[in-house]
């Protein structure tokens, strides 16, 4: 994967098992977001293969739109549609991609919003919600499509500290329910509690990976040590 001449990712080889939570850390510009965005081809890799749930999404004739709704994505800046209510945000793809009738779409949206603790916010517009509520609505929007895997790109980085917990709780609940997750984040406490594996990236390559306890306690590579030391203080 490269932007113009800049090679952003090189020789990435990563395998995420069903129900696994892979936690990705690394310095700014190391290619974490780019890696996630390649996983649903919001970014186009120059070469290589990406397989999700047995389907090669990098294949030539791959039905991208059908594949993408199986891959939920949550963004640092929420990216809720400001002209639609929380319910409308969740319902849009249900209606336009899956072709669900309105009543059914609304019922699914309600259930998804209940799951993230926003039962009473279905008719609120994003600007009437707190940051944490917006991010949970964004999670509901992805969940409603029953994805096989959820990608989180710094889901709590734009939140006030007191709102981070609500979002992490929802993510922890997802993990317990068996969702496959790839999470880019700096929330080390969450990583230690919920991650099955931590991957450290730097300069577009995977430097080191392992169980959270191992990787945080005794990193083998110097770069990992430096980075972990930095963020843990």
């Amino acid at each position: 994967m490269s932007y113009e001449k800049l090679k952003v990712l090189r020789g990435i080889n990563i395998d995420v098992r069903p129900s696994e939570l892979v936690f990705i850390i690394g310095p700014s510009g190391s290619g974490k977001s780019t890696l996630l965005r390649c996983c649903n081809r919001l970014e186009e890799p120059d070469s290589g293969e990406i397989i999700v749930d047995g389907e090669a999404i990098t294949a030539k004739g791959a039905n991208l739109n059908a594949i993408r709704r199986r891959i939920g994505m949550v963004f640092q800046s929420f990216n809720l549609y400001p002209h639609l209510t929380a319910g409308g945000n969740v319902m849009l793809a249900l209606r336009k991609v899956l072709g669900k009738p309105k009543a059914e779409a609304r019922a699914i949206a309600e259930a998804a919003l209940v799951r993230v603790g926003l039962a009473d916010k279905i008719d609120n517009y994003p600007n009437q919600l707190s940051g944490g509520q917006q991010q949970r609505a964004a999670i509901a929007r992805a969940l409603a499509l029953e994805p096989k895997i959820m990608l989180f790109d710094e889901p709590t980085s734009a939140l006030d500290p007191e709102l981070v917990g609500d979002v992490l709780n929802v993510m922890a609940e997802l993990k317990r329910s068996g969702m496959t997750m790839v999470v880019v984040s700096h929330e080390m406490r969450f990583a230690k509690a919920a991650a099955d594996r931590v991957v450290f990236m730097d300069g577009g390559v995977i430097v080191e990976q392992g169980a959270p306890a191992d990787l945080f306690a005794n990193p083998k590579q110097k770069r990992t040590r430096d980075f972990v030391g930095q963020i843990e203080q």
């Binding site: 965005r37 649903n40 919001l42 739109n65 059908a66 993408r68 709704r69 891959i71 939920g72 994505m73 963004f75 800046s77 990216n79 809720l80 549609y81 849009l92 793809a93 336009k96 991609v97 964004a138 929007r141 992805a142 499509l145």
Partner: peptide, 13 residues
Amino acid sequence: AGQTDASRSTGLS
């Protein structure tokens, strides 16, 4: 661009 990212990631064309 985030709006397009969000929309395309849910499968809208």
